[in-house]
Amino acid sequence: MALNKSHRQTAMDAGLISCHDCGKLMDGRHVPQNGHLACSRCNADVHFRKHQSVPTTWALVITAAILFAPANLLPIMQVELFGSVEYSTIMDGIIYFFHSGEYGIGLIIFMASILVPLFKIVGMISILLSIKFKWKRWLRHKTKMFHFIEFVGRWSMLDIFVIALMSTLVEFGSFTATQAAPAASYFAAVVVCTMFAALTFDSRLLWDA
């Protein structure tokens, strides 16, 4: 692919906007009176850069970081066995798998419900800081990391789905029953916040610095 004549000219420099939904390139210099320019093809709102991207992403990432604590410290599941109730946190479930020798599954749950959310929060914070302080190094790696964060976000829902299935299937009257516990809500909120953070963030801002 050939670079444009003047090296490293962005679409914004040329007064062009590319639609985030369909990729169409259009002239962005004549914004209508109401301030909203719509894509001529798919009618999505188009902007040179996503509106209020950095503050919104900061807010969502900080919210996720705060909610991450109760999500991990409170119990996420309660198991009733012959009348006695036992609560377990996310980490308890993982340790249980390691004790019973099922390392593969233990590792999958550890990655999906602890490592991935943590990586997303830390990764987004480091990207946001690098915009704030205009760090111009490792731009390509940061972009790749952002794509990875976008891709991996949905997989943290794994634990929620497991609990939903367990509480439906393991329901043997008074002998044993499984139910969700408060951390499930916090954990779901963490997943939603980090996924929205990836959506509101505009990776083009990294390259503008």
Binding site: M1, N4, L16, S203, R204, W207
Partner: peptide
């Protein structure tokens, strides 16, 4: 900018670099 010139260009969705569409 001519309309036809815009049709032959694309912008990278991740870094906004203006490129000739091939």
């Amino acid at each position: 900018i001519m309309k036809s010139a815009i049709a032959q260009q694309i912008a990278c969705p991740a870094c906004d670099l203006l490129l000739q569409n091939i």
